[in-house]
């Protein structure tokens, strides 16, 4: 009576979460819509001055995407806790950290990827110079999974509480400061015509570290949060 092999379990997990995301695709549109609304508000608040918008475009898009992701993070484990799926996952003979890693991957694919896809559109509306566009996309490509991984640990910690989005934001802010700094740093450097690969490399290094550690921390946090 041995447990199913790991690849099978991983693909089952990934397939289930992606199917669920697809069946609730109305929910998936929400963060995208939110990001568009926030990004559109900036020119109204600051005026249509081209030079000013150009200067802030990269940072605005990054922060907008971050906020939209924060909005979606809360739901990462919520329904699984409600219907008892999470208990079954914890009790399964599979390594919990790896299964959670798959969940995080599915969550990233479903929420962050659409945001990355519309990011060039938002950046274009704010007149980000085309030269900085590759830097922005690469920065998002490394920064968003980092946020998903870090956010997953914190969401897991709040799993046993009366849920509150504000608490999650308060907890995530200190962790995402370095991510925002480096991602925005890359875009700013690209805009000034400076070499911008170094901050991206730092983000990539942090991502590799987090891919290994965050699922483990997430599993530990979940066990604490469910133990009552």
């Amino acid at each position: 009576m041995s447990a199913p092999p790991l690849p099978q379990a991983c693909s089952a997990m990934l397939r289930r979460d992606l199917t669920l995301a697809w069946r609730r695709r109305g929910d998936l549109a929400m963060p995208v819509l939110y990001a568009v609304i926030v990004a559109v508000l900036f020119p109204f608040a600051l005026g249509p001055d081209l030079a000013l918008l150009q200067r802030i475009a990269g940072g605005v898009v990054l922060v907008t995407v971050l906020l939209a992701m924060l909005l979606a993070l809360d739901a990462m484990f919520a329904s699984d806790i409600e219907d008892g799926s999470l208990e079954q996952l914890v009790l399964s003979p599979q390594p919990l950290a790896l299964m959670l890693g798959m969940k995080i991957l599915a969550h990233w694919l479903a929420t962050a990827l659409p945001l990355i896809v519309i990011a060039p559109l938002l950046a274009g509306m704010l007149h980000l110079p085309p030269a900085a566009m590759p830097a922005l996309l690469l920065a998002l490509l490394f920064a968003t999974p980092l946020l998903s991984l870090l956010g997953a640990v914190l969401v897991a910690l709040t799993a046993g509480t009366r849920r509150s989005g504000m608490l999650l934001a308060l907890m995530l802010l200190p962790l995402c400061v370095p991510v925002v700094i480096f991602a925005a740093g890359a875009v700013a450097a690209a805009q000034q015509g400076l070499p911008w690969l170094a901050p991206i490399a730092w983000l990539a290094a942090a991502l590799i570290l987090c891919v290994v550690l965050a699922p483990l921390a997430c599993a530990a946090a979940l066990r604490i949060a469910l133990d009552s």
Binding site: L157, T158, G160, L170, A217, A220, I224, A225, D227, S228
Partner: peptide, 20 residues
Amino acid sequence: IGLYHAFEDRRQGARAAGFL
């Protein structure tokens, strides 16, 4: 502090907040 007070069970809250 916020995470600690979000839990009903104080010991569980202490462990979660300690992790943070």
